[in-house]
Design a protein around this nucleic acid. Structure first.
Lengths: 239, 239
DNA sequence: CAGTGGTCTAGACCACAAT
DNA sequence: TTGTGGTCTAGACCACTGT
């Protein structure tokens, strides 16, 4: 059962997407009116509308009111929302398959140990996967995870979703990530697996993912085909 | 004068960065204690700590408490926080200069008109700038802005900061943006101005920027040197 | 002036965690 | 059971907008 502010947020979001508030120059009803409609206090309405502001769907002006913002552009490429946690397997894409190129254990070097908050030379999984969508190569992933934190990883898990294994089998919760995104020249391995020409680049995402107790559990590099992935983000200053 | 929750947020942020809460296993004082310290209600403390959660600096667990998260990695490259509004001129980088490659008026095509919410064939500025840091090329920008919304743009403004002109001279407020980030092959123009080899890629950012009244005022493409820019983002699920 | 959102309070009840 | 954060209320006062 969602809390009340979340229900109101979802209802309002759907209304905005349905274009309900187009009529009065994109203006939403004022807060007191919404309080009456949803039978709640102003604080609860504000919490719901603040979520819409964070989504970039509305903006609010003291003394004026709250207004729907024009929608952003769409794109035919795979679209990664910056604030999305889900792995590729759980994205809106269908037909995601994985090809495991390499799966072995190694001793953590300084960098990996540092990122995963473990000791140098502690054992880690070293996973090399190619992810395909509709049989076409999309991304080449190099992933390091601590074996003691994430026990029992095997080919079967890797062929499906590691994130599902962590959340459903190990019953951990994934809390978030830290990401660095950059462009890079493709190397021979990229060219081979992603079927790129040697002049074509990749979009690299370096990521540390955290569990809900704050422990980093994954350090990875994902090299995406430059022409099939883009990152999407919205951000609104408090106004 | 900042509101109380903002002052508390800033104070707590500084304390975290100073490592004040390292002692007790990264645990923050509980909310009631903080209420007493800052002489405020729990709602106000929560609002302040929620900002720290959004910054990815702390996480909070029902029944347990609030804890500082390990800090992210640093990098020697120019680091663009996903939720930053400021232009390059106002970033932490010093010695930012601009070289105006082209500055003219044109009729908005369908795409530009659509992004800027104006009519097709309305006049727009078409600005081509090379931005340098310490005399080294970093980014090539192609910017479109409506002449009626942003009047009086000239070479002098372009040589300094367009954002400063909009906020300080025109007295508008910049509210936020919508961004799409992707990798791309460099074209001859990129190679010439950014001093890239023809095999080297760029990091392209397509952006629509909005004023605080919801009006889009800028549509731009920024093509960054792949080896001097990276995007940084943190995201934490509500836990 | 009236209308609007922004902040803030002092409490209440709940759900979850550890003991 | 105790301690913790999550939600929610019913009101208050303030600052900003437009008439």
């Amino acid at each position: 059962m969602d809390p009340k502010y979340m229900q109101i947020y979802k209802t309002m979001k759907q209304r905005i997407l349905d274009g309900i508030y187009k009529e009065d120059n994109q203006k939403l009803p004022n807060e007191v009116t919404l309080c009456q409609e949803f039978d709640c206090s102003r604080m609860t309405i504000k919490k719901a509308l603040d979520l819409l502001v964070m989504d970039g769907l509305i903006y609010r002006k003291k003394g004026k009111g709250s207004f729907v913002l024009p929608p952003g552009a769409l794109s035919s490429k795979i679209n990664i929302q910056e604030d999305h946690i889900v792995g590729l397997t759980n994205s809106s894409e269908k037909n995601v398959t994985s090809k495991i190129l390499d799966f072995q254990l190694k001793f953590a070097d300084e960098t990996i140990a540092n990122k995963l908050c473990i000791q140098k030379n502690d054992p880690v999984y070293d996973i090399h996967r190619l992810r395909l969508i509709d049989q076409k190569p999309y991304v080449l992933e190099r992933t390091y995870m601590s074996t003691s934190l994430i026990p029992g990883l095997d080919m079967d898990v890797l062929n499906h979703s590691v994130y599902d294994y962590i959340e459903q089998t190990l019953n951990f919760k994934i809390a978030g990530f830290l990401r660095i995104t950059r462009a890079d020249c493709s190397n021979p391995s990229d060219q081979k697996y992603l079927e790129l020409k040697d002049t074509e680049p990749v979009l690299e995402v370096e990521q540390v993912a955290y569990l809900d107790n704050g422990t980093p559990f994954e350090y990875s590099f994902s090299r995406h085909r430059y022409d099939r992935f883009e990152f999407f983000s919205r951000s609104m200053r408090h106004i």
